[in-house]
Amino acid sequence: MTKLYPWLLPQFNQMQALTSKGQLAHALVLTGAAGIGKDMLANALAALLLCKNRQPDGACDTCKSCLLRLAGNHADLLVLQTETQHIGVDAIRQLNQFTYGAAQQQGYKVVIIPAADTMTEAAANALLKTLEEPPAGCFIILVSSNYSQLSATIRSRCQQWQLHAGSEAMLSEWLKTQSNTPLPPFLLDYCQGAPLKALGMLKNEQAGSLTEMIALLDDYFSGKLQLAALVKQLDGKAELSGMLGFYLRQRLAQPVDFLRQQAVLTAYQRWCRDATRIIGQNSALALTGLLTELKPLLQHQETKWKS
Rank of each mutant, 00 (worst) to 15 (best):
I36V: 06
R93S: 15
S144A: 05
Q55K: 03
A267Q: 09
Q226E: 15
A27M: 09
V111I: 07
L8V: 00
D219F: 09
G37N: 02
Q269L: 12
Q94E: 15
E168Q: 15
A102M: 07
I92A: 13
E173N: 05
C138T: 15
G58W: 01
V264H: 05
Y268L: 13
Q192I: 08
Q192K: 04
A59V: 08
W161E: 04
A123S: 02
Q159D: 12
L50H: 03
D257R: 04
Q81N: 15
G88R: 13
L4R: 00
K64M: 07
L199A: 07
I36P: 05
S241F: 11
A124M: 09
A115I: 07
L30K: 01
L41M: 06
N146C: 12
M213F: 12
A169G: 14
L227H: 07
N13L: 14
L265V: 13
K129M: 10
R155T: 00
P184N: 13
L230A: 14
E212H: 13
T31W: 13
V264W: 10
E83W: 07
T276V: 14
K304N: 08
L78Q: 15
C158M: 07
A42M: 05
A123I: 02
Q301R: 14
K203C: 10
L8T: 01
A123W: 09
Q281T: 06
Q23R: 14
A75W: 01
L291T: 03
R69K: 14
G193V: 02
L234E: 04
S156A: 04
T2K: 08
Q159F: 09
M1E: 05
N180A: 14
R157S: 08
S167Q: 00
P296L: 10
D117L: 05
